[in-house]
């Protein structure tokens, strides 16, 4: 049985797709057979970040409607060979995702995969609810600002009441907080909420803190999951997060402002 992980947030533009790409790549890199599904029907993005947009023939909705088989729609990643992508349809609407249809696809994927990562669309409507319905675990992506935190709180409420686990009265969906776009300097200046602030408000365990970085944007534009930028802060932070998701204990990093050393201040004018 595969473990189903939804990457969700409520708010848009906080880094769900970036996170889905990196977490699925990270799981696959560790040898777990992983598929990442784009639930954002109509606003397909995951294929761009995974650099497979030119290889999309069939999509998620085609499979649900029986126009294609799963094997026809799944795209094999070129960098990590245990990773597959199920792209969203760009020409349909979110209502094309039916609960039965999604269940059929997830059940079929469960037979062969270890992890199913569901990249949720923004919002709390049908598309987002379909993405989280079958989840065993949820990665709640949050930016350190008030509106993002409130939307995350809202989506946590929906996870606790409208997921399959909630409806069936099973153990609740396991929740993880992933704080993205974190800038310790701006936190020190009081322009951003701190990790402690967000943790205190949302009261769920912290999976990781991804520092704000130009590398993330560059990687996205190149169609590279940022976790593969192994030298970068953001890449390492995602790698830590995947390790923690798998139960490994790792100390949190990138949470404090780098003190500029004497020499760098002297020579770089910092």
């Amino acid at each position: 049985m595969a473990k189903i992980i939804v990457v969700t947030s409520g708010k848009g533009g906080v880094g769900k797709t970036t996170t889905s790409a990196s977490i699925s790549t990270g799981l696959a890199k560790r040898g777990h057979k992983t598929v990442v599904i784009d639930f954002d029907v109509g606003l397909r993005n995951l294929d761009l970040i995974m650099n497979c947009e030119r290889r999309v023939v069939y999509d998620f909705v085609n499979v649900i409607q029986g126009d294609a088989t799963l094997n026809q729609a799944l795209i094999k990643d070129k960098r990590v060979d245990t990773l597959y992508i199920l792209p969203a349809s760009q020409t349909r609407e979110k209502e094309a995702l039916t609960r039965d249809g999604v269940e059929k696809v997830i059940n079929e994927l469960s037979e062969t995969f270890d992890y199913i990562v569901c990249d949720s669309p923004a919002g709390i409507e049908h598309g987002a609810q379909m993405a989280l319905y079958y989840a065993d675990e949820a990665v709640v992506v949050t930016n350190p600002e008030v509106s993002s935190v409130r939307d995350s709180d809202r989506i946590l409420g929906i996870l606790q009441s409208k997921s399959r686990r909630a409806e069936m009265g099973q153990d609740p969906v396991k929740e993880h907080l992933l704080l993205t776009r974190y800038n310790p300097e701006r936190v020190e200046r009081g322009e951003m909420l701190s990790v402690q602030d967000v943790e205190e408000i949302l009261a769920i365990p912290l999976l990781g803190v991804i520092p704000e970085s130009q590398v993330v944007l560059n990687a996205s534009n190149q169609g590279l999951p940022v976790i593969l930028e192994e030298q970068s802060d953001a890449g390492q932070a995602y790698d830590d997060a995947v390790a923690r998701l798998l139960g490994e204990e790792r100390e949190h990093r990138f949470m404090t402002a780098q003190k500029k050393g004497f020499f760098s201040r002297m020579f770089k004018g910092g």
């Binding site: 709390i124 409130r150 939307d151 709180d153 809202r154 946590l156 409420g157 929906i158 606790q160 009441s161 009261a203």
Partner: peptide
């Protein structure tokens, strides 16, 4: 005993 979330 569980957090009452936004919207609940």
């Amino acid at each position: 005993s569980q957090t009452v979330r936004s919207g609940q």
